[in-house]
């Protein structure tokens, strides 16, 4: 059902865990009952220098989150903004059609983080609960 890359990222997630000194935290999903993701970004001179994630969800959601963190690390904010869920799925060697929506989570959390970052310092402080 899953590609070997999905399995690898699920078994050995990259950049998993919390970041205490993140510049911005993005969120996606429904904390009540759905899959949820938090992405923590450290940004220096408009470049993402470090990234961490936390995800509650199925294996495809976890693998998508992990893959996304690898894709954004070192990218300029402008480049990161252009990352789509299809690209995340593609990098993973594809996802089963019924699992495509799981990759949305990762792309949405990243966009949320970048939106908050561009909105200025007031919102950047807002840490996810």
């Amino acid at each position: 059902m899953y590609s070997s890359k999905v399995i690898d990222h699920f078994n050995n997630p990259r950049n998993g865990g919390e970041m205490a000194d993140a510049d911005v935290v993005g969120e996606a999903g429904s904390f009540k009952c759905g899959d949820t993701m938090k992405i923590f970004l450290k940004i220096e001179q408009e470049r993402i220098v470090d990234v961490k994630f936390q995800t509650f969800g199925c294996a495809a959601a976890i693998a998508s989150s992990s893959m996304l963190t690898e894709m954004v690390k070192g990218k300029k904010i402008g480049q990161a903004r252009r990352i789509t869920n299809e690209q995340v799925a593609e990098e993973l060697g594809g996802l089963p059609p019924l699992k495509m929506h799981c990759s949305n989570l990762a792309a949405d959390a990243l966009q949320d983080a970048l939106d908050k970052y561009s909105d200025g310092p007031a919102r950047k402080q807002g840490r996810a609960k």
Binding site: P13, E18, E27, F53, Q54, F56
Partner: peptide, 11 residues
């Protein structure tokens, strides 16, 4: 392992 990377886990 899954708790460590869970967005719901009270770190």
């Amino acid at each position: 392992r899954l708790r460590k990377i869970s967005a719901h886990y009270p770190q």
